[in-house]
Amino acid sequence: MIKRKNINKRAWFSSPYIIWVVGFTVIPMLVIFRYAFTAREGGFSIENVLALFDPIHFKALLFSLKIALGCTVICILLAYPMVLAMRRLNLGQRGFALFIVILPMWMNFILRILAWQMILSPNGILNFIVQKLGLQPLAIANTGTAVMIGVVYDYLLYMILPLFNAIAEIDEDILEAARDLGAESLTIFFRIILPLSLPGLLSGIVMVFVPSMTSFVISDILGGGKMQLIGNVIEQEFTKSANWNLGSGLSVTLMIFVLISMAFTMKNDVEGKKSAIW
């Protein structure tokens, strides 16, 4: 009884946050749901919600999935070696390595993407270097590759951080014990490090996969308007076409899609018992 009272006393501390969430998340969501289930001419309709499965929108969804999956895989492949290398460092060196990893994130998001546009453009820095080396100029600008580079660059940090947290926690003794029992480096990675870092990996996947799937600014700038992610489609419905109903319908379906994939990840996460960030 006493304990419960204490909890209740503190509960009102959360009221500023609750007001914030209700005002800027819950109510807007309800509005979006209302738009989503209303036809443009008025009246109930589920057409907008199912519109995601129209071939033209579905194509954008598939491309988004491709980008998100590709980005997640590339981030995993980049993050693991980096994090394993960071594990070996002493405390001060680790801090410096993390600082270097986080540093680009202190620059404005749009600026970072615009910088990549400059680097990848036909007369950009990359081609300048490539031509100096006597090679054929690369046509990366305004392609899926450019979008992929952009999302990987932007979201890699969100793979490295949770993964680093999980891997830094693994006791060196455990790895020595595995080696002592006859495990080679590759076996140690797959049988010890990978399963023990799984909670961090899952957090990383959620934090990279979801935003890269729904992003639209990166594809807009680096895709030159030709690369339509589902985020671009939704954005255009709200802005250019001024069709809020269709935009909301697509959003709702996409959200459900994302929630399902997250629920799947979270379930595994709970089984792993601890998680780095979620």
Binding site: D171, D173, I174, E176, A177, A178, D180, L181, I192, L196
Partner: peptide, 12 residues
């Protein structure tokens, strides 16, 4: 083979 001071069993 070694028996470590901190046991070092594989927690998973």
């Amino acid at each position: 083979n070694t028996v470590f001071q901190k046991y070092s069993l594989f927690p998973h």
